[in-house]
Design a protein around this nucleic acid. Sequence first.
DNA 1: TAACTATTCAATAAAACAATTGAATATTTG
DNA 2: CAAATATTCAATTGTTTTATTGAATAGTTA
Lengths: 221, 221
Amino acid sequence: MNMERTWKDQLYQEFARIGKCLSSPKRLELLDLLSQGPKSVDQLAKLTGMTVANVSQHLQTLHESRLVRSHKQGNFVIYDIAELSVADFMVSLHRLSEKQLVEVQKLKSEILLNHVSMEPIGLERLLKRMERGEVVLLDVRPEDEYASGHIPGAISIPMEELEKHLASLPADKEIVAYCRGPYCLMSAQAVEILKSKGIKASRLEEGVHEWKRFVEHSSKF
Amino acid sequence: MNMERTWKDQLYQEFARIGKCLSSPKRLELLDLLSQGPKSVDQLAKLTGMTVANVSQHLQTLHESRLVRSHKQGNFVIYDIAELSVADFMVSLHRLSEKQLVEVQKLKSEILLNHVSMEPIGLERLLKRMERGEVVLLDVRPEDEYASGHIPGAISIPMEELEKHLASLPADKEIVAYCRGPYCLMSAQAVEILKSKGIKASRLEEGVHEWKRFVEHSSKF
DNA sequence: TAACTATTCAATAAAACAATTGAATATTTG
DNA sequence: CAAATATTCAATTGTTTTATTGAATAGTTA
């Protein structure tokens, strides 16, 4: 049988291994969560609403395709994305999905209508205004996610502690809140809380990886 | 039941629709071929070694996820990628697969060992040498693929016509051949033919989309 | 060492998928 | 209008995949 054909078949078989990882909604959610920082199996189970056994199984699939890696820490097994490029690839997938599938666009806009008059600020404008000291960037993700990577200049106040720490925010400046990315609602909730306290606030749709891609694509010279 | 949970489930369901398209080797091969230019169903069937019915089925899956589009032309249905970004996404997938899966690296290097002493030229060096007029870039894909997009400055001689048209090549310059990309072997075969005729030649691994990405990432200023 | 916790393993049942076949449709050509 | 061609449809089969359950393992703490 044709040599070249079998070679191609094997090659595409391999590409499809990565593809198979992306064919389950739950696995995609796991990859997104791990993109924000390492997590244990039952942390992931709680965040996704899956059973632990189920999560473990999915993680092994991802592991076999080298998209995640793990190490043992005491009783826990901590999973992490295998490479930064995996997170970047997830951004590509989100972008493509949003561009091609109206359903994604619909879902996104529909949820933001629930969160009143939320015109998001763009990355470019945000960075300019931060330079001029006009706004404060607020990272509302859990502390450990902030610790494993955040947009430079952002301060960290996890969602649950936001109401307690309102005082520590500069009263005169506008607040821009961000979280895990375009499909995470924490920042939207944060903005609502801030607004309800009379603080001027807006939402940054992008997360760390979207930011990273932005600076890489715009700062070449 | 939790509002946010159902929203996320729907959203990731949609992302996974794109993922499912990428979970079959044959569908990936179809996407790669269509990235090079529009093709009819049985053209694709011949190129991939599948039955026509099977190809048609896969194409419909891809169509439902808006990764390809089609129009009727006489008796034929011509399929095409829906967006340039689909081709770019495929490049991302290839890159990620090659980075994470040793199997892909192995398959790639093993086939290039069959093609004698084939040190490929890099894009950067190629473009410089083209500017200086030291090399001629040769596109060995079928004419219509060249017509629907090629690296600027390249001349088109489809693989099958190469031996006939050897005379039309400048005798004093080195030839660099390219084809559909890193996983297409036409350019390697072309180089072998050229070398056997005593013409100095080397292979460019990259195809049109890899080139496009290269210039977009390096020419920002 | 015993109890406890986090994770994985193994077996199962239900659902989704892929390849195959032959028939049906639509368009073109003689 | 009949024959030919390209594609799609529909039904079938065998294979993979997913979620679920309960048991097994490995490491920790009392």
